[in-house]
Design a protein around this nucleic acid. Structure first.
Length: 490
RNA sequence: CGGGGUAUAGCGUAGUCCGGUUAGCGCGCCUGCUUUGGGAGCAGGAGGUCGAAAGUUCGAAUCUUUCUACCCCGACCA
């Protein structure tokens, strides 16, 4: 495993790959650019799903499901949308296989060609808006607040574990509203949910803001995002919420009769987060010993390891553990008692460190004698011997402390990696070092593109509630009213 | 799609230039004994169409041709 990964950007990918495979999170599958997510990794995803789903429902959203296949013609309808996705679509052209003439192979049956090709959804705006047209007639049918948990496929030229895979799991929300204001409000409500989830559950601080026009979603009026900073100084877009205006309503002819008895186009939003969040989780907290998971998302919060020589000792230890385990579980803490006799304690210690289990307990003969237990925390790697009495209360507090500590550490890291610069020379130098670089920009796509060409840095976001100040664009020297956030990104 | 590289056991690899015993090694796996407070030790064992196909040759992991897959760089990318 690479050492000092946070400072060795060039080896990062390799490090990450090894870590993830060793940590039992996921591995590359035989299918190009797709992932096999192992049970332990999937358990993290399930925890993320549960937390997000709850927040969506608390804000009035419902889950539904739409088809995986989208008729090709649907993509013709919104010009900028098709432009954004056309180059990365998987297309279904046939519906049958047959044995080849020489009997040796299975081949596509050319007679079974589809009249119209089907696109495997890269995102579901088109098929959902085609459906919404049938659901919406009057203002009484609005708003529609629907979320879908699904997989999507984007045939990326180059993939990267968790961050850009050909198939990925996500949730996509698609809402329909009477007014522009209501839709914008929805977009921001979701942005707040995403930020809250990232910070309170993942312990990853994020910047909330607006994307520049060139970085926005294909088909959106405005794209809002949460932007996180990884330990190697690169930025990661962790979630997006789009105000779609009436673009899709017009493309799919979705109109409603208003209270004023006028026929109007519906206002729309869409928003999503994906398994990329798991990449963010790994890259934000992990160290050279493996994953570090925030307690709120850890599938196993406490691992207990017995240390023994003889079976009688194990029995005695197990008896004690049963009591501790029951008390922890009564507090809603997930516990794994690893009494396998096929692995030794040292092996298990390492395994749970790889897996990022926040708290580890070890109980051996010495502890039985003294009425103690060894408690170790993953985030700081500290361990101490404490009295076994009331250990469940200590663990409960410790889990909360670890959750806070991870966030504080990540926030501190981001503060130290955020810089304000005012000249082009400073900018180029700082971008090379990584981190968020706050700089003035003249607001044009052209300048943004040139900066990207020269430095590979992009505008990650224009923060919400951004302080207004007079300045000059670092590239063109033209006047500017606010700083925007530049960084190299994944 | 352009440029470069790689393909040998579950994983990592040696051997390829210069063809020649039964394709070697480490990790992992299996069995036994000893071990168990930070990834145990010793002994024995199993596991290979050398990416695929065709060719050259007495003989091919090694040479030739074609194909396929993967990796890196670029283009591309909410």
């Amino acid at each position: 495993m690479a050492k000092n990964f946070s400072t060795r950007e060039e080896n990062y990918s390799q490090w990450y790959n090894e870590l993830v495979v060793k940590a039992d999170l996921a591995e590359n599958s035989a299918v190009r650019g797709c992932m096999v997510i192992k049970p332990y990794g999937y358990a993290i995803w399930e925890k993320m799903q549960a937390a997000l789903d709850k927040m969506f429902k608390e804000t009035g959203h419902e889950n539904a499901y739409f088809p995986l296949f989208i008729p090709k013609s649907f993509f013709n309808k919104e010009a900028s949308h098709v432009k954004g996705f056309a180059k990365e679509c998987a297309v279904v052209t046939h519906y049958r296989l047959k044995t080849s003439d020489d009997g040796k192979d299975i081949v596509v049956d050319e007679d079974a060609k589809l009249e119209e090709e089907l696109i495997i959804r890269p995102t579901s705006e088109t098929i959902i808006w085609d459906t919404y047209r049938k659901w919406i007639q009057s203002y009484r049918d609005l708003p529609i607040l629907i979320n879908q948990w699904a997989n999507v496929v984007r045939w990326e030229m180059r993939t990267r574990l968790f961050l850009r895979t050909a198939e990925f799991l996500w949730q996509e929300g698609h809402t329909a509203h009477e007014t522009s204001q209501e839709a914008v409000k929805e977009t921001l409500t979701i942005l707040d949910i995403y930020a809250k989830f990232a910070e309170e559950w993942m312990a990853v601080p994020v910047l909330k803001g607006l994307k520049s026009q060139s970085e926005k979603f294909a088909g959106a009026i405005d794209t809002y995002c949460i932007e996180a900073l990884m330990q190697d100084g690169k930025a990661l877009q962790a979630g997006t919420s789009h105000f779609l205006g009436q673009n899709f309503a017009k493309a799919f002819d979705v109109k409603f009769l208003s209270k004023e008895n006028k026929l109007e186009y519906v206002w729309a939003t869409s928003w999503g987060v994906s398994t990329r969040l798991m990449g963010a989780l790994v890259m934000a907290h992990s160290d050279d010993k493996g994953l570090v998971l925030p307690p709120k998302l850890a599938p196993i919060q406490v691992a207990i390891i017995p240390i023994y020589r003889k079976d009688e000792q194990l029995e005695e230890i197990s008896e004690k553990v049963r009591v501790i385990k029951a008390r922890l579980e009564a507090k809603g803490i997930s516990v794994k008692y690893d009494d396998r006799d096929t692995y030794k304690p040292g092996w298990k210690f390492s395994e749970y460190e790889f897996k990022g289990v926040p708290v580890r307990l070890a109980l051996g003969p010495r502890d039985l004698e003294n009425g103690t237990i060894e408690i170790a925390r993953r985030d700081t790697l500290e361990k101490e011997i404490i009295s076994i009495e009331g250990v469940e209360d200590i663990i409960e507090k410790l889990l909360a402390e670890i959750q806070e500590n991870l966030y504080a550490k990540a926030l501190d890291f981001r503060k130290n990696k955020t810089f304000s610069v005012d000249t082009w020379e400073e900018f180029k130098m700082q971008i090379e070092k990584g981190g968020f670089v706050m700089a003035h920009w003249d607001g044009t796509d052209e300048t943004e593109l040139k900066i990207k060409e020269e430095t590979k840095a992009t505008i990650r976001t224009i923060p919400l509630n951004n302080p207004q100040e007079d300045g000059r664009c670092i590239f063109t020297g033209k006047p500017s009213k606010e700083r925007v956030v530049f960084a190299k990104a994944y």
